[in-house]
Amino acid sequence: MVPYILCMILFLIGVYGIIAKKNLIKIVIGMVIIEYAVNLILILVGYRSGGAAPIITSIEGASREASTFVDPLPQALIVTSIVIGLSVTVLAIVLCLRLYEKYGTLDILHIRRLRG
């Protein structure tokens, strides 16, 4: 229960960064923090207390080892999610660079004012 609440606080800090900050770099940082929080909460749901990593080390004791594994399904989904998050971050950074070239600033208020 307590780790879930801590994760939710982390998520909310990211949401605050996206909503309230005026700088585009801060908005990208908020996106990254939200991504971390979501990855972490899915892994926390799949954790079994005292569980072992889901890797089999010997053929004979495979079934005995398998009874102590943590949930491997969220891990398999999060591995892809982390790499997708990196490429989405790259896309956001590239958009920020283009906006900086066009307007000469990263402040969204100035960008909005220069429209048209």
Binding site: V28, I43, Y47, V70, Q75, I78, V79, V83, T89, V90
Partner: peptide, 21 residues
């Protein structure tokens, strides 16, 4: 949380994201 695959991916991705930011 016994997820070594994720730990490896997260370290490397973090370095790359830091360079790009």
């Amino acid at each position: 949380l016994s997820a070594p695959d994720l730990a490896i991916v997260q370290v490397v991705v973090e370095v790359l994201a830091l360079i790009m930011m």
